[in-house]
Every structure is written in structure tokens, then in C-alpha cells.
Amino acid sequence: MPLTHRALVRPRVTANDVPVPLADDVVRRAQQGDVDAFERLYRAHAPAVHALARRMLGNEGAAREMVQDVFVRAWERLGSFRGESAFGTWLHRVGVNLILNQLRVTRRDVARFIDDESDGDVPIATAPAIGVDERIDLDAAIARLPAGARTVFVLHDIEGYAHDEIAQMLDLAPGTIRAQLWRARRQLMRHLDA
């Protein structure tokens, strides 16, 4: 199955796909060691990286740490960016890889943490409550999902990766990915209906 990405799957234009003015020149200067140019790239792309991190990690503090890690890693790897895709797309993949690495480190391995969550919901005590009068907040509902289901859901339904690609990234069977995805959707529907 061909690999897909949100830019191909989602019908709307995303921040990752909008070229920064003079992007090529800015990227080239950053690749030559110009930190000021890299700061321009940061300002253009940090919000999208932050949104990705916050949705996948479900935690604002961890997301802010991850934004820093992603941009430091991107700086280190700038030499490997060949311009074959948009810079935002390349950066997005750097971010996804780093986030998954962190999940592997903190959870030993993704397969294990996904299997560990094969039943039940997030314990109420650890799930931030959505107030009755509060405007329905999809991001808050996503943050309440168990980590494994949230990871698969964000990658598939928000970022637009295909089942098989997620399975490859997580080294899991596609069937496991589908099961997690369905579980995440069901839990979200319950959270949002509550």
C-alpha cells in the first residue's frame, strides 16, 4: 500500500504545506549555519509541530519540551534535507519520529503499551474533566484517550497516515492498529457525547 500523508489525505491546506516566503533561501541559509534563518523557520513551523506534539503526547508540558527537541534535531539533520519535499513535511516526519521514539523510551515499547491498554478507559482520576458548560473541545477529548489509542488516532484521523504506514512505524500488525483506531473513535464519541 502506498504511504500517505495528511497533505494527500486531508482536503484542507495545512501550515505544513504553505510555503514560507523565500522558504528555499531561508532553508539554504539555515543549512549553511545561519541560526537567524533557522529562527525564521522556527517561527513559521513551530505552531504545527507544537500541535502535533500536544495531540500525540496529550500534555502541554511534554509538548513544549518536544518542540525544543524537534527543532534541535532538525538543526542537526538540516544537512540531510534535500528539498525533495516541503520543509514542513520533512520537519513533520522528524517530529513524528522523535515523538514515537520518546513513547518507546518511556513505555519500553509501543507494542507493549498498546497491549497494556487493551481494555478499559483512562482512569477517571487521571483524565482531565471536560466541564458541562465548557465548549466542546476536541483537543481536550483527544488528550483524554489512552496513549496507545491516541497515538494511532492522531496519526490516522488527524495526520492522515495510512494503517499500514502506522503499523510500520510502530512495528505492529495492521489489525492491531485498526483495533486501536476503532477504540479511540468510540471513546471520543463517548467523551464528546457526555
Binding site: A15, R43, A46, H50, Q68, W75
Partner: peptide, 18 residues
Amino acid sequence: DTVDAELDTLWPAIRSRI
């Protein structure tokens, strides 16, 4: 594609690490 957050404050730490 973005969520509300003040991200400018993160740059000095990133620059420092770089």
C-alpha cells in the same frame, strides 16, 4: 493545525542548545 500557545519563549532555549 495549531493550538493556542505562546511558543516564542521556547526559542532562546533552542538557540542556546544549538
